[in-house]
């Protein structure tokens, strides 16, 4: 045992220094030089003030904005310092109630909408910070947003298409719309 102790302790300390200090600092250095904007959080800056991140969703309930995914973070939705999903199982009555409530809110804001309700618009995301919705979820809201803002539906639709990304490299993931960037662009229209 005694012959093992010195190598164990000294090797542990040395490898800790390499993997726990040198490695993260080296990566930070490279990232700062090569991808400074991404390394700092892909922030959206307006008039010198950070108004959000391209990658982190925000809470929207006003009918004149596009709404994002429901968020299960606490105590407030889209709490970006405590990410979390709902973790509700498929049979949980709380899940059914929550979805019912979200459907009612959508209907209340846009009673004439006859489109099928997109699943991602009424189911909470995994992180609680999902910045995207599906193109279907955006299309569902076009008439409402256009009506609230007295814009032509075609103009809003065009703006949505501008903010729609397809599958990455054509094969990875799903098509999606960045809600915060879309809403910022909407506000900039007028």
């Amino acid at each position: 045992m005694k012959t093992l102790l010195r190598p164990a302790v000294s090797l542990f300390v040395l490898l800790t220094a390499v993997t726990g200090i040198v490695y993260p600092l080296a990566v930070t250095g490279i990232a700062k030089v090569a991808f400074p904007e991404a390394a700092a959080g892909s922030l959206i800056v307006k008039d010198g003030k950070a108004v959000g991140s391209r990658l982190i969703g925000q809470n929207f309930t006003d009918p004149k904005y596009f709404w994002g995914r429901p968020s299960a973070t606490g105590p407030m939705p889209y709490n970006a310092s405590a990410s979390s999903g709902s973790n509700q199982g498929p049979l949980n009555p709380a899940l059914v109630d929550a979805v019912k409530g979200r459907i009612e809110a959508l209907k209340a804001a846009d009673p004439d909408n006859k489109l099928p309700i997109p699943a991602d618009l009424v189911n909470a995301s995994a992180s609680g910070l999902d910045p995207h919705i599906s193109p279907e979820a955006a299309a569902y809201q076009v008439a409402r947003v256009a009506g609230q803002r007295h814009l032509l539906a075609a103009d809003v639709k065009a703006l949505v298409s501008q903010h729609t990304e397809g599958r990455q490299l054509g094969v990875f993931g799903e098509a999606r719309v960045n809600v915060l960037q879309l809403n910022i662009a909407l506000d900039a229209l007028r």
């Binding site: 995301s125 992180s127 999902d130 599906s134």
Partner: peptide, 27 residues
């Protein structure tokens, strides 16, 4: 989830509770 389909939620997208939009079902 059949309980949500009954409420009028589009079933084509699959089970989206606890999933991120950019990954969807397959990823």
């Amino acid at each position: 989830n059949p309980l949500l389909t009954q409420l009028g939620v589009d079933s084509a997208a699959g089970s989206m509770e606890g999933k991120e939009t950019r990954f969807g079902i397959a990823d």
